[in-house]
Simulated assay, not measured.
Amino acid sequence: MVKHHVYWWNLESLFDIENSPRRSEFLNDHLGVELKEWDSVILDKKIANLTSIISKFNDNNGPDILGVCEVENEHVIKLLIAAMNMSLNKNYGFVISEGGDKRGIDTALIYDNAKYGPEQDIFSLRVIKRNTTRDLFQVHIKTATGNKLIVYLITGLLAQEAN
């Protein structure tokens, strides 16, 4: 029986420094105090702290699959993955769902390329009440044994189903 070491983590506002949608007037009005000191030094420290903990998952082997939320964009997820790859000597890939949340808060799926093939199929569903919020994000990937693994990223939750 093949085990998949699957984890979920809220990165709690892993924001970018450049090309950041959060620098809009809306965000400055709503999150100005929290963002005032956010700079490259703090971003680098946050990436280092996250990597330190994530590297301990799965008996210090790192996750096979890691679903994350509250990541601003592709650039910062690439920074996190580069740090994870260096720390764990692995080659992680990712898929991100760039949602319509005005705060720039998205979900992403990180996976070990040695154990999973490139994504086959991606499906997103935006849940809209008054404003767009995080998506329901479904990703189909192949396992090393050729099976399909369907991973669902739901606000605050990660579920999996294999066939």
Rank of each mutant, 00 (worst) to 15 (best):
V6C: 13
L157N: 14
N10E: 03
R23Y: 12
D16N: 14
I54Q: 01
N10Y: 03
G93V: 01
K46L: 05
G104I: 02
K142F: 12
A114W: 01
E161K: 13
K78H: 04
V76F: 00
I65L: 15
K78N: 07
H30G: 01
F137T: 06
H30F: 12
D106T: 07
K56G: 08
I47Y: 02
R126N: 13
I53G: 04
V6P: 02
F26C: 10
D44S: 07
F26I: 14
L27W: 10
V6M: 13
E72W: 07
T143N: 11
V41R: 11
S24H: 06
F123Y: 08
K115Y: 08
I42V: 01
K78F: 02
E74Y: 00
Q160C: 15
Q160G: 02
E74W: 00
N60Q: 08
V71P: 01
S97G: 14
V127G: 10
H5K: 09
T51E: 06
V41C: 09
L50T: 08
E25C: 07
P21V: 15
I110N: 01
L80I: 04
W9L: 15
D64T: 07
K115D: 04
I105Q: 06
C69A: 09
S55G: 14
L14Y: 04
M84N: 05
D101Q: 09
G62E: 01
D112T: 03
K78W: 00
V6A: 15
L88Q: 06
F123K: 15
R126V: 14
L79A: 06
I47K: 08
A159G: 03
V68A: 00
